[in-house]
Amino acid sequence: MTLLAHDRYVDEIAHQVGQLRAVVTSGADLSATVPTCPDWRLEQLVRHMGGALRWVDLLVRTRGRENIPTEQVPEYDGPEPGCAPAVLDAWLAESGRLVVEALREAGPDAEVWAWAGVATSGFWARRMAHEITVHRADATLAAGLPYDVAPDIAADALDEWLELVEWVQRNAPHEAAKELRGPARSIHLHATDTAPDLNAEWLVELAEDGVHWRHGHEKATVALRGPLTSVLLAFYRRLPLDSLELEVLGERELLEFWLEKTTFG
């Protein structure tokens, strides 16, 4: 599949860090439970994201050839729990600055350890752009704030998620992913609010030999239709399927089965 430019991913990381910082400084209750990640408080989600950015910064900056334990990442955990929002915001800002600088300096082709796909800095630029895009949705839902995302990023986030599901099913010993194999069935995702050149339709086929997917408008066992951002959030299990802006046509049980079995990301 065609990727976005490396600089586009890095720019988006910088943008999303700014947007997440705005949640931190909005006056939101940082002790509130995150509805879409109920094991976390909002402060914990922010710390998770900032720590992940610092971990990727160290991987890329050192051209790490193997995984780096988080215990070795400077300031991975951030400031003292329960600190003032301004202190947490400053740490998050620095986390974003570090990883953006490291990724810009490395470019897309530097060899860096990665847990899936091609082991390059480009993998991490794309992965972190989408990681923070989705976790910012978690944060805005917890804070009761509006959420939007650029169409090219939303569409590419869906591409990347399907690629990761495909990779995990073929390469990782994950029982839930293995259960996606079976009699031929299919899922159609259809964004209803985008320009045709964005190619924001997907057909996901579940077969005996694994998951396959492609862009296109085709009949399927079940279809999920709605605005692109809503389709993205629903497919990432951040928005209920019965939300008013979404439409499910066909065998809803298959879509629910997919969402249940793709919780490893």
Rank of each mutant, 00 (worst) to 15 (best):
Q169D: 02
R237H: 03
S243C: 06
R127P: 14
E105Q: 12
A93R: 09
I132N: 03
E80P: 00
M49L: 14
E251C: 04
W113R: 05
R252W: 02
R126A: 06
A142E: 02
F235L: 14
D77Y: 09
A114V: 01
A52L: 14
L53F: 10
L246D: 05
W91L: 07
H6C: 01
V231I: 14
T263K: 14
W55F: 12
R127M: 09
T33A: 08
A155I: 07
N67K: 06
Q16Y: 06
P35N: 05
V100T: 13
S121G: 06
H188P: 00
T70K: 13
G96M: 05
A155P: 02
G182C: 05
G144Q: 13
E256P: 11
L233I: 01
R61W: 07
L203K: 08
P74D: 01
T263A: 15
T62E: 15
A223H: 05
W213M: 00
P173W: 02
T62Q: 13
A14F: 01
A28E: 02
A93S: 11
V99Q: 03
E12S: 03
T62V: 00
A129P: 05
D11H: 05
D193F: 06
A154I: 10
E94M: 03
L244H: 15
D138M: 13
R127K: 10
R97S: 11
V87C: 02
S186Q: 04
D138G: 05
A116I: 00
I187D: 02
E94T: 04
A195S: 07
W213A: 10
H135W: 01
W161D: 00
E12P: 01
A184R: 08
G50P: 13
R126H: 15
A5V: 10
G226F: 14
R8L: 08
A154H: 12
E208D: 07
L246Q: 13
D209I: 09
A137F: 12
L241G: 10
K261Y: 04
F235P: 09
D242T: 15
E101K: 09
I153K: 05
R47K: 06
L206P: 05
A125N: 03
H212P: 03
M128W: 08
E101A: 15
W91A: 13
V248D: 09
E260A: 11
L203Q: 14
T25K: 03
A172N: 01
E208I: 07
P173G: 06
K261Q: 12
S243T: 15
A191Y: 08
R136D: 02
L228V: 09
S95P: 15
R61Q: 11
G51L: 04
A177M: 10
V134D: 01
T33K: 13
T262Q: 11
S31L: 00
D242A: 10
A154G: 06
L103T: 02
I187P: 01
W258S: 08
H215V: 06
G210P: 10
E101P: 05
G144A: 05
T36M: 02
H174F: 12
L249G: 00
E247G: 00
R185C: 07
A200R: 13
R238P: 14
D156N: 13
T192N: 06
S121I: 12
A5G: 06
L53M: 10
T140P: 00
M128F: 11
R170L: 07
V56Q: 07
